[in-house]
Amino acid sequence: MLLNVSYNDKKIIQKINDAVGKPYPLKDRFAMGGIGSPKLHVTEASVDIYNLFVLDNNTNTCNVEMRPNGIIVRFRSRLETYGLVIPYYKLNMYKGDIGIYSIYMDHYFVKVRADTKAIQRYFKKLMDHRTENLPTNLEDL
C-alpha cells in the first residue's frame, strides 16, 4: 500500500505496524548491522509512483527500511514523504542484467540502480532476512 507518511498520524502508523511489524529496537539494529539501505537511484517506477516523482525536479531517489514482516520503500515528492509498505509475502525482487534491482508488490514496482557494493550487500542482507522471516503457513499471515 502506498501511504503519505509525512505526518505523525496514529492511524497510518498502526496500518504500517499491522502490515510489516513495529520498527526494530536500537539494540537489534546494531546487531543486524543496520536496517536501512544507502540512497537508491530510481530508474523506473509504476504509474502511481512515477506520477509523484514528476511533481518536482529533484533526482528520483528512495531508501528501503527492513521491518520484521516486510519492508518500507520511502521516497520524497515535493515536501511530502511517501512509503510503499510491502509485507514479505507480497514482495517480489529481481536482479537485472545491468545492475538494476526491481522491487514489486501487486501493481506497484520500483527499479533501482545497484552501482555500488554497499547496495548489493544490502539487497543480499534483505533477501536473507526475508527468507528467515517469510511466513510458512497461511495462518501466520
Rank of each mutant, 00 (worst) to 15 (best):
S46F: 12
S46H: 10
P38F: 11
L26P: 03
K27C: 06
E44F: 07
P38V: 12
V20F: 03
K22R: 15
S37R: 13
K39D: 13
P38Y: 11
R29L: 08
P23F: 05
K22Y: 15
S37V: 10
G21L: 02
T43V: 15
G34K: 02
P25E: 06
G21P: 02
S37A: 10
A19W: 00
M32D: 06
A31H: 12
A31T: 09
K39G: 12
M32A: 07
E44S: 14
A31P: 01
G36M: 11
A31S: 10
L26M: 12
K39H: 11
P38N: 13
G34N: 03
G36S: 15
G21N: 06
G36E: 13
G36L: 12
F30A: 13
D28Y: 01
K27Y: 09
I35K: 00
F30W: 08
H41L: 01
L26D: 11
I35D: 00
N17G: 01
K27E: 15
S37I: 09
T43F: 09
P23D: 05
T43H: 11
Y24C: 02
A19H: 02
H41I: 00
H41W: 12
H41P: 01
A45F: 10
G34Q: 03
K27M: 10
F30Q: 14
K39Q: 14
L40M: 12
L26I: 10
A19N: 00
G33P: 01
Y24R: 01
R29E: 14
L26V: 08
Y24W: 08
G33A: 06
A45G: 09
F30E: 15
L26K: 15
G33Q: 07
V42F: 06
E44V: 10
G21Q: 07
A45E: 12
S37Q: 12
G33E: 04
D28H: 08
L40V: 11
P23N: 05
E44G: 02
K22L: 13
N17V: 01
D18I: 01
D18W: 05
S37P: 12
D18F: 06
G33H: 07
D28S: 09
I35Y: 04
G36W: 10
H41S: 10
T43W: 12
A45N: 09
A45Q: 10
P25L: 09
V42L: 05
A19S: 09
T43R: 08
P23K: 04
K27S: 11
I35P: 01
E44Y: 01
L40S: 07
Y24E: 03
N17P: 00
L26S: 11
P23H: 06
